[in-house]
Amino acid sequence: MKINILVVDDDRDMRKLLENYLKRLEVEQIHFTDTAQKTYQLLNLNDLKTDPSVDLIILDIILGEENGIKICKKIKSNPAYQEVPIIMITAQKESGYLKDAFAAGAMDYLKKPIKKIEFMARINSAIILRKETKARIAREKELLKLSEELKKANQKLEKMALVDGLTGISNRRLFDKTIKKELKRARRKNNDLSLIMIDIDNFKEYNDTYGHQQGDQCLKEVASVLDKKTKRAADFAARYGGEEFAVILPDTAKDGALKIAEDIRKGIMDLKIEHKNSNTSEYVTVSLGVSSIKAEKEIDQHLIRSLIEQADQALYQAKENGKNQIVYKNFE
C-alpha cells in the first residue's frame, strides 16, 4: 500500500530536515507546501467528493502569518480528510495552542526541536494506523458494493420467481398467492369475486403445424391481450400452465365477468393469428370458463380448489360446446 505525505511548513530548513527523515520510512511521495492556499489546492479541498491526495499531513502550527490550527480545521471540514491523520509541529512556547489543535482534529503533535528518534517513531505509528484505516475503508467499500449487488440479484430472483419467463405475465405461483389474498379481501369486504379460466383452442395442432417457436409466440400474444384487458389495478392475469391462463377479477359479479370474458375472446380473434389446421376458425381462438363467488365462508384451500374447479368445468363445457365461446357456472 502506497503512502503519500504532505509537509506544511514555511521554513526551508525544516522542510529539508523532515524530508531527510521521511525518506527513510516506507513512503511513496513527500509533498511540501508553505502557505494555506497552496495546501488547500494540493489537497483539492474545494471538491467535497475528492479522494484524499495524501495519507498523512504534518503541519507546522504557526506558519509565518498563517495559523496552522485554521488550516487543520479547514482540512478536517472536508469529509474526504476525516480519516487522514494530521500531526501538528509546535515550538515549546506555543503549547497553549495544543488544546485548540486537538479540537481542530489533529491526531498527535511533535515539539520542536525535532528529535530524530521521536519523530521517526511517531510518524511510523501514524503510517501504520493509516495503512490499517485504508485497508478498512477498502473492505467497507467492497462490502457495500457486494451488498448492493446481492440486493439487486435478490430483487431479480424475487421477480423471476413470480413472473412467467416466456410471456412476462404473472406465473402460477403468484396466481396461487393472489387468489387466496383476493378471496380473503372479498370476504372481509363482502364483495363478489370472479375467476376466468382460459385455454387456447387446438393448441396442439397449432404447434404441430407451425412449430414450437411459433407456438411460444402465440402464447406471448395471447398473454399480452390478457394483460391489456385486465385494466383495473386489482385485476390479475396469470399463465396457469401450458396453454392455460387465468384471470382474477376482484369486486366483480357474473355480468361484469362475462363482459370482460367476451372482451378477451374478441381480443384474441382480433389478433388474427393464422391457424389453418383448426376445426374452429381460420384464426387462433380461446375458450373461457367463468365462475363467480360471494365469499361468505372461511377461506381455505378447499374453497379455493372448488372455485378453480367450477371455472375449469365451465371451460370444459365451452370446449364441448364447440370452443371459441364462454360458459358460466355459478359457484355452489
Binding site: 521554513d11 530536515l17 504557526i62 520542536k112 526541536p113 528529535k115
Partner: peptide, 24 residues
C-alpha cells in the same frame, strides 16, 4: 521576530541547540 522564531524551530532539530537558544 520571524527569523528568530524560525531559527529557534530548526536549530535544535539539526543538532545546533545553541541556535535554538539564541533564536528564542
Amino acid at each position: 521576530r520571524i527569523i528568530g522564531h524560525s531559527m529557534k524551530g530548526s536549530g535544535g532539530g539539526y543538532g545546533f541547540d545553541y541556535l535554538t537558544e539564541i533564536g528564542s
